[in-house]
């Protein structure tokens, strides 16, 4: 730390310092739920990402695998995996993409506060003693890299745009040739439960991403006055409105993205039946 004119404070009351906490409420419940929630998602997400199959069902594409750059489904942008890809390396289309939303969430201001508490006990809870004495905060490697959160936001906004396109595609079902008139297969508008699942996922992801603290800064927070910038002011106020419930949207979107993959996977495996509503 650079030269500081701040002064140390003498805190001699060791008797007061020694206890873990005087709190009597169940302060550990939120952290335990956070730990369980994040761990469950990490385990499922990793498992699903490495599978490399059952990520497509009809017009539905799992958000874990979108955009599918190389793959065997009709959703693949560049077709099958190229020959030059080393055969000994494992491959799943999700591995090329998931690091973007993964790092966005890892560096998200809400998630940082939550996992510092739940995974690092730093602190385990407010006014609860910590297991470690040394603390460097986000001043040095690796946590100093949290400061590039905005770049993962930019990349994630790109992924979100693709997921919105996927959700739109999820409303167009292929009709095989000869079933309803035309001799060639074609697509028709329809609504399946999966269409709504993917659409809901996009809405929740949008509410999460568009309430990001970095986006709030970039839309207007970095300026001291927005009075003469009405468009930026409106954007800043919209982002700020979403930002007030950033934690809620972070959790809802985490569940929805996991459930979307699960839904497509279950339908693809024939365990669940996708109901056609329209």
């Amino acid at each position: 730390m650079a030269t500081s004119e701040l002064v140390q404070v003498d805190l001699p009351d060791k008797g007061l310092k020694a206890r873990v906490t005087a709190r009597r409420d169940w302060w550990w419940i939120p952290q335990a739920l956070t730990f369980l929630g994040f761990s469950s998602f990490l385990i499922y997400g990793n498992w699903a990402a490495w599978q490399g199959n059952h990520y497509v069902y009809g017009p539905y594409l799992s958000p874990f695998y979108s955009p599918e750059l190389w793959g065997n489904s009709p959703h693949a942008w560049f077709g099958p995996l190229p020959q030059w890809y080393p055969q000994f390396l494992p491959y799943s289309p999700a591995l090329l993409i998931l690091w973007i939303p993964g790092l966005f969430r890892l560096t998200c201001y809400y998630y940082r506060g939550a996992y510092y508490k739940a995974f690092w006990a730093d602190p385990p809870g407010c006014t609860v003693a910590e297991p470690r004495k040394k603390f460097r905060g986000e001043n040095s490697f690796p946590l100093i890299w949290q400061n590039i959160h905005r770049y993962f936001l930019f990349l994630s906004l790109g992924v979100l745009a693709i997921l919105i396109y996927d959700a739109f595609q999820a409303f167009w079902f292929e009709v095989p040739a000869g079933l309803s008139g035309p001799a060639e297969s074609h697509t028709e508008f329809g609504i399946g439960v999966g269409s709504l699942v993917l659409l809901t996922n996009c809405v929740l992801l949008s509410l999460y991403l568009l309430g990001c603290h970095s986006l709030r800064h970039l839309t207007g927070g970095r300026l001291d006055s927005l009075q003469r910038k009405p468009i930026r002011k409106t954007c800043y106020e919209c982002v700020s409105g979403l930002n007030k419930r950033h934690m809620r949207w972070a959790w809802f979107s985490l569940f929805s993205v996991g459930f979307s993959d699960l839904y497509v996977r279950m339908c693809s495996m024939g365990i669940w039946t996708d109901m056609r509503l329209f």
Partner: peptide
């Protein structure tokens, strides 16, 4: 960044939760 050590804050929002004036300190 330097002398006032903003990097030490790891945004656990304990300060916000105790503020009697409901100032949204962290956000």
């Amino acid at each position: 960044k330097q002398a006032h050590g903003i990097g030490f804050c790891n945004i656990t929002k304990c300060c916000t939760s105790v503020c009697p004036e409901d100032i949204t300190i962290t956000d």
